[in-house]
Design a binder for these strands. Structure first.
Lengths: 283, 283
DNA sequence: GCTTTTATTGTAATTTTTTTACAAGAACGC
DNA sequence: GCGTTCTTGTAAAAAAATTACAATAAAAGC
């Protein structure tokens, strides 16, 4: 049977493997990413052994042959893409940091996607769908996320607002009606002003949907807490991937609500699109 | 270049594929998990086509052959184990459209990453670095991108502003000095008001960096044009992935400028972080 | 509506790649 | 040191993928 973590099995077997097979193992561990693109001859050459030795190595680590081994390795690497180094250093060329920015973002998105709790999402969608008013609160980088979200939900014919000002948040919060929804967005999950606003929302009978890291004060305080754990390796500079993860989560919420709204919404969006056309350059 | 999300590419190509190739595509989409354990003969048999047709199909979806195809498929399935249908219908479950949203976003990001022109990016970074003032203009969904960008560059100690109001844009544009930079963000690349503002910026001697689709009016009008071709998803009329691509591109610009600024910036960011701490909840 | 042309698909041969069988050589025990 | 066992490589066979080409189907032209 195939082990879950192939590289783990390989390093575990290192001691029991024969000398030549160990050469293969070491090479595989050193550069697994390269191995999945190799043919058996290439790997044999790089590890300085013969081809049958490679096959024997594959069998020794529980695979059914070389192809099977490559497949298993590829799968593992795909699920933990953090094999390449992602920290941004000063000497990076443009090409390199461009790739790093995009790759870290992709990495974060996939991690968040897999860690999302679907029932929570469903609950959040239902709450938004049932609300008279939907508001988005966030500060700093999350303020931009809030405005983006407001724009999106506005297009879905939902009465929505976005506030990055604690005074406005508080004023608006106290005027909410039971069943109304506030989406509190925080990358740190520790913004005191946001926590204060959330408290007012709850006092007014509103539902607070939190978008914040697991276990953070915002997450704990929210009525419905969507956990977004985009741990930033390069937090030193600026928040990068986490706000993109927030945007993506909001996209999911928007689509969920859009689906609940059904076909009537399509017509509305069509008209909206037609209306926008007049603001556009013909070519 | 290998497509990031293979199944996505396959369903996209469904219409352009030949009849027999489509049979292969449909079978692969129906049961991708089985395919990765198959040899080419098996797949040919199941799809009721010949083996060369399978190879042709693999090439048609951007792979280098059958092995390459299987590897790419295996990698994708590893990161989304319960992969089923990709076609979007109204009946999509939460799980499905969550995946769909994240996957298309990832797909877009990787496509944009590979299509970015590095020299243009370098030119843009140099222009921003050399400017006294940097402003971001955008409407609608791009307005949120502009505000996010403003926030980011503000943290890099760059005098920056973001305007989503054409009047403010125009007023600000006329007050720019030669060498100042405006980043014009547009998903459609066809916003007339934005084109007007850009004209004023150029008259004032400012440099316009455009973030828009290739060949669009905004792209043609910009002094430095960064092409972002994020083919927008048909089914929903809300901009989804493209604005995330814009954000990522701006991240790249920010990091580029940050590097040019060098170590002094680090100190500044440290102080900034310390300042923010007081606004945060202790736990 | 028939002929010519082009595009699509499958058959068969070729090439590539992996695996097996076996023998040479090294390590170990006696 | 000799025989045994274990390890590794060579070479042949098997399996798999790919290419070349021909047959057929579809489309365009007359």
């Amino acid at each position: 049977m195939k082990p879950a973590r192939l590289t783990q099995t390989i390093s575990d077997s290192l001691t029991t493997l024969r000398k030549s097979e160990r050469k293969v193992a070491e090479f595989v561990l050193k550069d697994p990413l390269a191995v999945i693109r190799m043919r058996i001859v290439d790997l044999a050459q790089h590890a300085e052994v013969s081809e049958p030795t490679v096959v024997r190595f594959c069998r020794a680590v529980g695979c059914n042959g070389f192809q099977d081994f490559k497949l298993a390795l590829a799968q593992q690497l795909a699920s933990s893409p953090s094999y390449g180094q992602i920290a941004v250093t000063d000497q990076d060329s443009t090409r390199e940091y461009t790739h790093k920015v995009f790759d870290t973002t992709v990495d974060t998105l996939l991690k968040v996607r897999d860690s999302l709790d679907l029932e929570t999402l469903d609950a959040a969608i239902a709450a938004i769908y049932g609300a008279q008013r939907v508001e988005f609160y966030g500060f700093g980088a999350s303020a931009a996320v809030a405005f983006d979200a407001q724009h999106k939900f506005f297009r879905l014919q939902i009465t929505s607002a976005a506030y990055a000002d604690p005074h406005l948040q508080n004023m608006s919060a106290t005027s909410l009606h039971p069943g109304d929804v506030v989406i509190a967005i925080s990358q740190s999950g520790r913004s005191q002003a946001l926590l204060d606003s959330m408290e007012l929302v709850k006092q007014a009978g509103g539902i607070v949907i939190g978008l914040s890291p697991t276990g953070s004060p915002v997450a704990r305080s929210a009525s419905i807490s969507i956990h977004v754990d985009a741990k930033e390796d390069n937090q030193i500079y600026i928040p990068l991937s986490s706000r993109i993860a927030h945007l993506a989560v909001i996209d999911v919420l928007a689509i969920g609500v859009a689906q609940k709204k059904g076909p009537k919404l399509d017509e509305h969006l069509m008209r909206l699109k037609a209306g926008l056309a007049s603001l556009r350059s013909p070519v």
